[in-house]
């Protein structure tokens, strides 16, 4: 009566609070039964399911989420620094692998160091190591080995947020 991966889907989204991403059988299953799951999570837990073409997660009702803020700061600084190095940020985030060492170097030299230092989980490299573990558990990144990781499609959620900020600002300026 329940879809094949029902238990895995519920556990991942609800208990692990992680992204399901394209390529996982659970994600395919979720998309096939999207209406059911949207109702299921809404009716059972009062949570809304956000499902895009290549990622999905359960949106919490909280609007001041520390993890979310930390991710925004991390991605924001990373994007800014990559652009400064003349890289195509969307291409890099979507298709490239990242060596922790390189990311650490970018962050260490960043002009946004003050912001990083004021952020508990991004303060120094040992805090950031925990942060990377957390990102992997939430499936925002995939660890390839001890030295390299890759972003999952989940990162697009945060890029869309940034775009929204710019568009809103642009709108304000035009008014």
């Amino acid at each position: 009566m329940y879809p094949e991966y029902h238990r895995e889907i519920t556990e991942s989204l609800l208990m692990d609070a992680r992204f399901l991403v394209e390529g996982e059988p659970e994600f395919t299953c979720l998309r096939e039964h999207l209406d059911f799951y949207q109702q299921f999570f809404k009716a059972s837990f009062g949570l809304s399911l956000l499902c895009q073409s290549d990622y999905a997660f359960l949106q919490s009702a909280r609007d001041n989420d520390t993890l979310s803020r930390d991710i925004c700061i991390f991605l924001g600084v990373l994007c800014y620094e990559m652009d400064r190095e003349g890289k195509n940020i969307m291409e890099e985030l979507g298709f490239s692998t990242f060596a922790y060492e390189d990311v650490e170097r970018l962050l260490e030299l960043s002009s946004f160091r003050e912001v990083l230092e004021a952020t508990k989980s991004l303060r120094d490299s040992s805090s950031r190591r925990n942060f990377y573990h957390l990102l992997a558990r939430r499936r925002l990144i995939d660890k390839i080995d001890d030295e390299v990781f890759r972003f999952t499609p989940g990162h697009k959620y945060f890029l869309e947020f940034a775009r929204g900020v710019a568009q809103m600002k642009g709108g304000e300026e035009e008014e």
Binding site: C72, G76, F112, V115, F161, A162, R163, A166
Partner: peptide, 15 residues
């Protein structure tokens, strides 16, 4: 891309 970047910069101004 420029939109994303300028969005991040607005955000990082008061993170």
């Amino acid at each position: 891309e420029s939109e994303i970047l300028s969005g991040w910069i607005f955000f990082l101004e008061r993170p």
